[in-house]
Amino acid sequence: MTTEVEAPNNVLSARIADDLRRAILSGELAPGERIRQEELAEQFGASRIPVREALRILVTDGLVNMVANSGAWVSSLTQEECSEHYKIRERLEPLLLSYSLPNLTEEDLEEISSLVEQMKNLDDIETFMFLDRQFHWATYAKANTATLSDFIERLWNTTQPYRRVFTRMVRSGGIEITHLEHELLVEAIKRRDSEEAERILHGHIRRTRIELDRHPEVFEHQFDTGK
């Protein structure tokens, strides 16, 4: 049974986790940046208990790395690790889409089409990334899976900072390819052509991986994560 003391801590832990998650995914906190628990406790007027619980939540999400007797850092990847994460995504996200596609309703199709239109002609990268994430997860929303969605979401979280760099790179030329791939994906989904939709999605993710593989400098200026 939850006690009166525990309930406020649980609520506070969730609030701290939500705030940190937003800061990490938006790029406000960079890969490898130290997270100081005492500063968080002071910021939220909390004890160390809800702060530690919030960090444990974010470790599960793939957003934070905790080192025993050392501290907590925003998760970071080497170029090799990031490439591996993308290769896993290339293979598993089409599978997740195949589970979802037959269950998507007309309302779902309208939503994903609207998100594609909203992403066009955007100058703000953060808004683009937010809508892009909404778009892809809207296509996965009706997948009835026990573990696959959670696993893939963790991979999205760990690769988010590097996807941001990729998005900045393609803004200078080539963003039209991203829009075209989105449109082709939507059309395949509307036709309920799972094989074609999976093929397009695989290539869409693979293109990002290949581009990041060509830019080792993306991974050279990260903080010390205490590993």
Rank of each mutant, 00 (worst) to 15 (best):
Q134L: 10
S114I: 06
R133W: 06
R154Y: 02
V218W: 04
V116E: 10
S47G: 13
R48T: 15
E84N: 11
G174H: 02
S113Y: 05
I125H: 08
L104R: 01
Q160E: 15
E81T: 03
K227V: 10
N10A: 15
L115V: 04
L101T: 01
N103E: 12
A23E: 15
E81Y: 03
K87S: 14
A7S: 11
I189C: 08
R168K: 14
K227Y: 14
H182S: 06
F166S: 11
K227S: 13
V51A: 01
L63N: 02
M169N: 08
S172P: 04
W137F: 09
L63C: 00
R199A: 07
I49M: 12
S114V: 04
N121Q: 12
N65S: 12
A14F: 03
E39D: 11
K227M: 09
A14Q: 06
M169E: 13
N9Q: 11
C82G: 00
M1I: 05
R214P: 02
G32T: 04
D19F: 10
T208Q: 12
E107T: 10
E198A: 11
E181W: 09
R209M: 09
D150Y: 03
E183N: 11
T167N: 08
S83C: 06
F223Q: 07
E187K: 14
I16T: 00
A143K: 01
P31D: 02
R22N: 14
A46M: 06
E195D: 10
V59L: 05
S75D: 10
P31K: 00
L131H: 03
N103P: 01
S113E: 10
S70N: 13
L92R: 06
F128G: 01
V116K: 06
A72I: 01
A30L: 13
I210D: 12
D224H: 05
Q43A: 15
E53A: 15
P216H: 04
G203V: 00
H202Q: 03
A138W: 01
I88Y: 09
R164V: 09
H182K: 05
D224L: 09
R199P: 00
E38K: 09
N103T: 00
